[in-house]
């Protein structure tokens, strides 16, 4: 079979995660003009919320449940949104106001990442401790989860398809459309676009630019939290899980051009597919050449790095900057 169906479904979940993360990263970049190196760790915090929900709601006893979603999604959105808001309000905004250079702001986000990973490590230690001492035999089984848990065993399936494969794309779609409507149809959303484009002018018109930026950071964090909930269904839980994922997230944002939310989402999706199918076909080709079974899943970020390099060389402003009318007409697709 040329296209593997299960691979396609897995990819849908993973690519949607990247879509959400690249989109929300782009939002923070548009607002604050600094690439947030802590963004993938935002998602990791969301992932830990799922473990906590599995524990507190007793899902570890009952098995797969929709609870992992309907409880985790809002909790993650809120918690990570607040983390992002704190990062903006008490770190980035005061530093930017003091006139700290972009390098300084970037290293500050790197510092936040270190702090957040440290806090996740402390939480993991705590959780391990609690699980280990628990009289509940089922809970004791969770002891390895805080540092290397696959939580996909607790998610329900829909007609034999894991929920994340359907929910991931759905979340991405709903948030993209929701965001689009919010930005174009509401007064506050319009003010948000105005304040992002020209904060000085917006300020003189009486728009509270600070509020707008705070809301942007909250939403961006919230979306990263949602991404984390889906992400933990495809990846092993680990406090530093964001450190390698950030490569893919940046790749998606750069492919999208770091200037448009829509293209950020597209960039993330493309990177997800590129990584997964790139690995898949490279495995097949190398396998055929060497006659051995080759597993390259751990090297998927090679494709992301390649995408970053190619994009920065060919079109540094990302896909959004390309003249799509001309490309489509060259390809003879103008009518479409």
């Amino acid at each position: 079979m040329v296209v593997n169906v299960q691979l396609f479904l897995d990819t849908m979940a993973y690519a949607s995660v990247l879509g959400l993360l690249s989109m929300s990263l782009t939002l923070t970049y548009i607002v604050s003009r600094v690439p947030n190196f802590a963004h993938a760790t935002f998602a990791a915090i969301g992932s830990y919320m799922v473990l906590i929900i599995v524990w507190i709601m007793g899902i570890y006893k009952t098995g797969p449940s929709w609870g992992v979603y309907y409880a985790s999604l809002p909790v993650s959105f809120l918690v990570v949104g607040i983390v992002a808001l704190i990062q903006y309000l008490i770190v980035l905004r005061p530093l930017a106001k003091k006139g700290i250079s972009i390098d300084g702001l970037m290293i500050a986000t790197l510092g936040i990442d270190i702090i957040l990973v440290g806090l996740l490590n402390i939480s993991a230690d705590f959780l391990e401790d609690i699980f280990q001492r628990s009289p509940d035999k089922d809970l004791r089984k969770l002891v390895t989860y805080p540092r290397s848990g696959y939580l996909s065993s607790y998610e329900p399936t829909i007609m034999g398809i894991t929920a994340s494969s359907i929910l991931g794309p759905l979340l991405l779609l709903v948030s993209t459309i929701g965001f689009y409507l919010f930005l174009t149809r509401t007064k506050f959303g319009t003010a948000m676009r105005a304040a992002i484009e020209n904060p000085q002018l917006a300020e003189t018109l009486g728009i509270n630019v600070n509020l707008v930026y705070s809301v942007s950071w909250f939403i961006a964090g919230g979306l990263a939290g949602l991404a984390g909930v889906v992400m933990v269904m495809t990846t092993k839980l680990n406090p530093a899980m964001g450190w390698i994922l950030i490569v893919s997230v940046f790749a998606g944002s750069i492919v999208g051009g770091l200037g448009s939310l829509f293209w950020g989402a597209i960039g993330g999706l493309l990177i997800g597919f590129l990584e997964q199918f790139g690995v898949y076909y490279t495995q097949i080709i190398l396998g055929a050449l060497t006659g051995e079974t080759i597993s390259l899943g751990n090297y998927r970020q090679v494709f992301s790095l390649g995408a970053i390099v190619v994009m920065l060389l060919v079109a540094p402003q990302g896909l959004a900057s390309l003249n799509w009318h001309r490309i489509l007409s060259r390809l003879g697709l103008k009518r479409w």
Binding site: F37, I244, I246, V247, N298, Y299, Q301, V302, S304, I308
Partner: peptide, 11 residues
């Protein structure tokens, strides 16, 4: 950063 993470954490 991406190049470093890719080389160190993946390869």
């Amino acid at each position: 950063l991406a190049a470093a993470e890719m080389v160190v954490m993946a390869i």
